[in-house]
Amino acid sequence: MVLLEIRWHGRGGQGAITAAQILAEAAYLYEGKYATASPSFGAERRGAPIMASTRISDNKIYRRSQIINPDVVIILDDTLIKSADVTSGLKKEGIIIINSKKDKGSLGFNSLKVYTIDVTSIAEGLNLYSSGSLVLNTPILGAIIKILKITTLDNIKKLISAKFPSDGGINALAAEKTYKQTKLE
């Protein structure tokens, strides 16, 4: 893995920034990679479109600029397709991982490799809410590590549990459910 550049799209409160960090931690602490994670620079508001990024590499990362041509775009909420330029700069062979109940053919991402996972239903099924918002970040990590082969399910569960020590393990369980429901083809 020379350099994997991942851009996250979410809404303020959905946890994209935390997920970007947990993914970088998984790569660094468990897989011996160099990794960085950034929020979108500037102001963030609950409900407004936000971005975050994760870079993962076998070598030390010297790139400090914001990602222009991501290898992977992760979309936590399919309503963002209308309000944010989610495919901006995505490489031709790039991957989209999106939380959606819709059929991937209906999302308008022609010719791109798209993985749809209904993370919303998994989070709702587990009653996974935080401050009134449905938690989408920890469950989608289960899909991401499976599709991108970043780390094992056990490792990501350990990291998520360490991040949310008093949640009774529900975030890790959500990641596991998503992991198992994610189909690679």
């Binding site: 970088a24 990794a35 960085t36 994670a37 990362i61």
Partner: peptide, 10 residues
Amino acid sequence: GYILSHTMMP
């Protein structure tokens, strides 16, 4: 600022 202050690194 941000480029380092808000970016997580090893």
